[in-house]
Design a binder for these strands. Structure first.
Length: 242
DNA sequence: AACGGTTGCAACCGCCTTTAA
DNA sequence: TTTAAAGGCGGTTGCAACCGT
Protein backbone atom coordinates (compact mmCIF):
# COMPACT_ATOMS: atom_id res chain seq x y z
CA UNK A 1 0.00 0.00 0.00
CA UNK A 2 1.41 3.29 -1.00
CA UNK A 3 1.04 6.50 0.85
CA UNK A 4 -2.37 8.01 0.36
CA UNK A 5 -2.80 11.51 -0.97
CA UNK A 6 -3.77 14.00 1.64
CA UNK A 7 -6.04 16.98 1.28
CA UNK A 8 -3.39 18.97 3.19
CA UNK A 9 -1.47 19.15 -0.06
CA UNK A 10 -4.34 20.88 -1.82
CA UNK A 11 -3.43 24.31 -3.01
CA UNK A 12 -5.17 27.06 -1.13
CA UNK A 13 -5.85 25.09 2.03
CA UNK A 14 -5.11 27.29 5.01
CA UNK A 15 -2.42 26.29 7.48
CA UNK A 16 -1.13 27.67 10.73
CA UNK A 17 -2.85 28.93 13.88
CA UNK A 18 -6.62 28.74 14.05
CA UNK A 19 -8.71 31.86 14.38
CA UNK A 20 -11.64 32.22 16.76
CA UNK A 21 -14.04 32.18 13.82
CA UNK A 22 -12.61 28.90 12.56
CA UNK A 23 -12.80 27.38 16.01
CA UNK A 24 -16.39 28.48 16.33
CA UNK A 25 -17.31 27.10 12.93
CA UNK A 26 -15.76 23.74 13.76
CA UNK A 27 -17.38 23.48 17.18
CA UNK A 28 -20.78 24.55 15.89
CA UNK A 29 -20.60 22.05 13.07
CA UNK A 30 -19.65 19.14 15.31
CA UNK A 31 -22.20 20.05 17.98
CA UNK A 32 -24.86 20.32 15.31
CA UNK A 33 -24.10 16.70 14.48
CA UNK A 34 -24.37 15.59 18.07
CA UNK A 35 -20.64 15.51 18.63
CA UNK A 36 -20.09 13.00 15.87
CA UNK A 37 -17.99 13.51 12.79
CA UNK A 38 -18.89 11.35 9.85
CA UNK A 39 -15.96 12.03 7.63
CA UNK A 40 -13.11 14.32 8.59
CA UNK A 41 -12.24 14.75 4.96
CA UNK A 42 -15.70 16.09 4.14
CA UNK A 43 -16.02 18.10 7.32
CA UNK A 44 -14.13 21.25 6.26
CA UNK A 45 -16.39 21.81 3.29
CA UNK A 46 -19.54 21.04 5.28
CA UNK A 47 -18.44 23.37 8.06
CA UNK A 48 -17.39 26.11 5.69
CA UNK A 49 -13.73 25.83 6.61
CA UNK A 50 -10.80 26.21 4.26
CA UNK A 51 -8.82 23.62 6.20
CA UNK A 52 -7.50 20.12 5.76
CA UNK A 53 -9.62 17.42 7.39
CA UNK A 54 -6.64 16.23 9.33
CA UNK A 55 -6.08 19.71 10.64
CA UNK A 56 -9.71 19.87 11.79
CA UNK A 57 -9.45 16.54 13.56
CA UNK A 58 -6.27 17.62 15.34
CA UNK A 59 -7.75 20.93 16.37
CA UNK A 60 -10.83 19.23 17.74
CA UNK A 61 -9.13 16.37 19.55
CA UNK A 62 -6.28 18.40 20.98
CA UNK A 63 -7.91 21.70 21.77
CA UNK A 64 -11.63 22.17 21.19
CA UNK A 65 -13.09 18.99 22.64
CA UNK A 66 -15.29 19.96 25.59
CA UNK A 67 -13.87 17.31 27.92
CA UNK A 68 -10.29 18.49 27.67
CA UNK A 69 -8.69 19.40 30.96
CA UNK A 70 -6.53 22.50 30.93
CA UNK A 71 -3.80 23.59 33.28
CA UNK A 72 -0.70 22.07 34.82
CA UNK A 73 -0.26 18.37 35.31
CA UNK A 74 -0.65 17.19 38.90
CA UNK A 75 2.01 15.13 40.66
CA UNK A 76 -0.27 12.10 40.43
CA UNK A 77 -0.69 12.56 36.70
CA UNK A 78 3.06 12.91 36.30
CA UNK A 79 3.70 9.71 38.23
CA UNK A 80 1.10 7.90 36.17
CA UNK A 81 2.62 9.08 32.91
CA UNK A 82 6.06 7.90 33.97
CA UNK A 83 4.75 4.55 35.11
CA UNK A 84 2.80 4.02 31.92
CA UNK A 85 5.70 5.21 29.82
CA UNK A 86 7.97 2.71 31.50
CA UNK A 87 5.51 -0.07 30.92
CA UNK A 88 4.25 0.81 27.47
CA UNK A 89 7.60 2.05 26.28
CA UNK A 90 9.06 -1.39 26.78
CA UNK A 91 6.13 -3.12 25.17
CA UNK A 92 6.02 -0.79 22.19
CA UNK A 93 9.76 -0.78 21.90
CA UNK A 94 9.83 -4.52 21.49
CA UNK A 95 6.83 -4.51 19.22
CA UNK A 96 7.97 -1.69 17.02
CA UNK A 97 11.50 -2.91 16.72
CA UNK A 98 10.16 -5.87 14.82
CA UNK A 99 7.94 -4.06 12.38
CA UNK A 100 8.84 -0.45 11.88
CA UNK A 101 11.56 2.05 12.47
CA UNK A 102 13.54 1.78 15.70
CA UNK A 103 11.67 3.01 18.76
CA UNK A 104 14.17 5.71 19.46
CA UNK A 105 14.37 8.61 17.11
CA UNK A 106 17.42 10.73 17.72
CA UNK A 107 17.72 13.89 15.72
CA UNK A 108 19.97 16.88 15.59
CA UNK A 109 17.04 18.91 16.79
CA UNK A 110 17.54 20.03 20.36
CA UNK A 111 13.88 19.95 21.18
CA UNK A 112 12.95 16.34 21.47
CA UNK A 113 14.29 12.86 21.55
CA UNK A 114 11.28 10.63 21.70
CA UNK A 115 10.44 7.03 22.21
CA UNK A 116 7.55 5.40 20.44
CA UNK A 117 5.53 4.63 23.53
CA UNK A 118 1.91 4.89 22.51
CA UNK A 119 1.04 8.34 23.74
CA UNK A 120 -2.57 7.77 22.81
CA UNK A 121 -2.65 4.70 25.04
CA UNK A 122 -1.22 6.70 27.92
CA UNK A 123 -3.76 9.42 27.24
CA UNK A 124 -6.61 6.97 27.72
CA UNK A 125 -5.50 6.58 31.34
CA UNK A 126 -5.59 10.30 32.07
CA UNK A 127 -8.97 11.98 32.02
CA UNK A 128 -9.11 15.06 29.87
CA UNK A 129 -5.53 14.88 28.66
CA UNK A 130 -4.61 14.46 25.01
CA UNK A 131 -1.81 12.42 23.57
CA UNK A 132 -0.26 15.55 22.15
CA UNK A 133 -0.36 17.30 25.50
CA UNK A 134 1.19 14.33 27.27
CA UNK A 135 3.86 14.00 24.60
CA UNK A 136 4.73 17.68 24.91
CA UNK A 137 4.80 17.47 28.69
CA UNK A 138 7.06 14.46 28.54
CA UNK A 139 9.51 16.11 26.16
CA UNK A 140 9.61 19.46 27.90
CA UNK A 141 9.39 18.52 31.58
CA UNK A 142 9.60 14.87 32.54
CA UNK A 143 12.40 13.95 30.18
CA UNK A 144 14.65 16.66 31.54
CA UNK A 145 13.73 15.79 35.09
CA UNK A 146 14.68 12.16 34.56
CA UNK A 147 17.96 13.12 32.93
CA UNK A 148 18.80 15.34 35.88
CA UNK A 149 18.15 12.34 38.09
CA UNK A 150 20.45 10.20 36.04
CA UNK A 151 17.61 8.08 34.70
CA UNK A 152 17.52 7.29 31.03
CA UNK A 153 14.14 8.58 29.81
CA UNK A 154 14.07 5.97 27.08
CA UNK A 155 14.88 2.82 29.01
CA UNK A 156 14.06 4.05 32.53
CA UNK A 157 17.33 2.52 33.67
CA UNK A 158 19.90 4.41 35.65
CA UNK A 159 22.51 6.00 33.49
CA UNK A 160 26.14 5.13 34.17
CA UNK A 161 27.53 7.36 36.93
CA UNK A 162 29.66 9.30 34.47
CA UNK A 163 26.55 10.22 32.54
CA UNK A 164 24.79 11.19 35.73
CA UNK A 165 27.59 13.55 36.60
CA UNK A 166 27.65 14.88 33.09
CA UNK A 167 23.94 15.51 33.16
CA UNK A 168 24.11 17.20 36.50
CA UNK A 169 26.96 19.37 35.32
CA UNK A 170 25.05 20.35 32.24
CA UNK A 171 22.03 21.19 34.33
CA UNK A 172 24.03 23.14 36.88
CA UNK A 173 27.30 24.50 35.52
CA UNK A 174 28.10 26.09 38.84
CA UNK A 175 28.05 22.89 40.83
CA UNK A 176 30.94 23.02 43.29
CA UNK A 177 34.01 21.05 42.34
CA UNK A 178 34.28 19.43 45.73
CA UNK A 179 30.76 18.12 45.52
CA UNK A 180 31.38 16.60 42.16
CA UNK A 181 34.59 14.93 43.13
CA UNK A 182 32.91 13.47 46.18
CA UNK A 183 30.12 12.07 44.08
CA UNK A 184 32.48 10.91 41.38
CA UNK A 185 34.39 8.91 43.94
CA UNK A 186 31.29 6.79 44.30
CA UNK A 187 30.95 6.20 40.61
CA UNK A 188 32.61 2.82 40.57
CA UNK A 189 30.58 1.48 43.44
CA UNK A 190 27.93 -1.02 42.63
CA UNK A 191 25.76 -0.69 45.65
CA UNK A 192 22.44 0.91 45.06
CA UNK A 193 22.83 2.70 48.35
CA UNK A 194 25.97 4.52 47.35
CA UNK A 195 24.71 5.37 43.92
CA UNK A 196 21.51 6.69 45.38
CA UNK A 197 23.50 8.80 47.79
CA UNK A 198 25.54 10.26 44.99
CA UNK A 199 22.45 10.86 42.94
CA UNK A 200 20.63 12.52 45.76
CA UNK A 201 23.54 14.74 46.59
CA UNK A 202 23.73 15.92 43.03
CA UNK A 203 20.02 16.49 42.91
CA UNK A 204 20.26 18.47 46.10
CA UNK A 205 22.77 20.73 44.47
CA UNK A 206 20.70 21.09 41.34
CA UNK A 207 17.15 21.20 42.62
CA UNK A 208 17.22 21.57 46.36
CA UNK A 209 16.89 18.78 48.90
CA UNK A 210 13.12 18.63 49.06
CA UNK A 211 12.79 18.30 45.33
CA UNK A 212 15.44 15.62 45.23
CA UNK A 213 13.80 13.63 47.97
CA UNK A 214 10.46 13.95 46.28
CA UNK A 215 11.78 12.81 42.96
CA UNK A 216 13.59 9.85 44.36
CA UNK A 217 10.53 8.89 46.36
CA UNK A 218 8.41 9.19 43.25
CA UNK A 219 10.54 7.42 40.74
CA UNK A 220 12.47 4.84 42.69
CA UNK A 221 10.25 3.05 45.17
CA UNK A 222 12.79 0.28 45.57
CA UNK A 223 15.44 2.71 46.73
CA UNK A 224 12.89 4.48 48.85
CA UNK A 225 11.90 1.30 50.64
CA UNK A 226 15.42 0.06 51.09
CA UNK A 227 16.81 3.31 52.41
CA UNK A 228 14.15 5.56 53.89
CA UNK A 229 16.69 7.62 55.84
CA UNK A 230 18.16 8.78 52.56
CA UNK A 231 15.07 10.75 51.88
CA UNK A 232 16.04 13.07 54.65
CA UNK A 233 18.30 15.03 52.36
CA UNK A 234 20.08 16.91 55.09
CA UNK A 235 21.45 13.68 56.48
CA UNK A 236 23.46 12.90 53.38
CA UNK A 237 25.90 15.73 53.08
CA UNK A 238 27.84 15.06 56.28
CA UNK A 239 28.62 11.57 54.99
CA UNK A 240 30.51 13.09 52.12
CA UNK A 241 32.31 15.54 54.30
CA UNK A 242 33.79 12.80 56.47
C1' DA B 1 15.61 49.12 26.86
C1' DA B 2 17.53 45.93 23.72
C1' DC B 3 19.19 41.72 22.49
C1' DG B 4 20.09 36.78 22.22
C1' DG B 5 19.14 32.32 24.02
C1' DT B 6 15.80 29.10 25.90
C1' DT B 7 11.41 27.07 26.72
C1' DG B 8 6.79 25.39 25.91
C1' DC B 9 3.06 24.51 23.10
C1' DA B 10 0.14 24.34 18.94
C1' DA B 11 0.20 22.57 14.63
C1' DC B 12 2.11 20.12 10.70
C1' DC B 13 4.24 16.11 8.30
C1' DG B 14 4.71 11.62 6.92
C1' DC B 15 4.22 6.84 7.84
C1' DC B 16 1.36 2.98 9.31
C1' DT B 17 -3.02 0.61 10.09
C1' DT B 18 -7.70 -0.07 9.25
C1' DT B 19 -11.62 -0.27 6.43
C1' DA B 20 -14.45 -0.87 2.61
C1' DA B 21 -15.27 -1.61 -2.21
C1' DT C 1 -7.42 -11.01 -2.40
C1' DT C 2 -6.16 -6.60 -3.82
C1' DT C 3 -6.26 -1.82 -3.75
C1' DA C 4 -7.12 2.84 -2.52
C1' DA C 5 -9.12 5.96 0.75
C1' DA C 6 -9.39 7.56 5.26
C1' DG C 7 -8.13 7.75 9.98
C1' DG C 8 -4.73 7.62 13.59
C1' DC C 9 -0.38 8.16 15.62
C1' DG C 10 4.33 9.68 16.81
C1' DG C 11 7.99 12.74 15.55
C1' DT C 12 9.22 17.25 14.31
C1' DT C 13 8.93 22.15 13.52
C1' DG C 14 7.76 27.11 13.99
C1' DC C 15 6.94 30.71 16.78
C1' DA C 16 5.54 33.43 20.71
C1' DA C 17 6.58 34.16 25.44
C1' DC C 18 9.85 34.23 28.82
C1' DC C 19 14.36 34.99 30.97
C1' DG C 20 18.97 36.49 31.75
C1' DT C 21 22.58 39.67 30.51
Amino acid sequence: MGRSPCCCHDAGVKKGPWTEEEDRALVVHIQRHGGHVGSWRNLPKAAGLNRCGKSCRLRWTNYLRPDIKRGNFTADEERLIIALHAELGNKYGQLLATRRSPPVAVTANTHAVCLCVGWSTIATHLDGRTDNEIKNYWNTHIRKKLLRMGVDPVTHQRLPPDDVLGGALAAAPGLPEALLSAAASLGGLNSVLMQAQALQLLLQAVNGGAAAAGLIASFSPAVDNAMPPLLNASSIVPNFQD
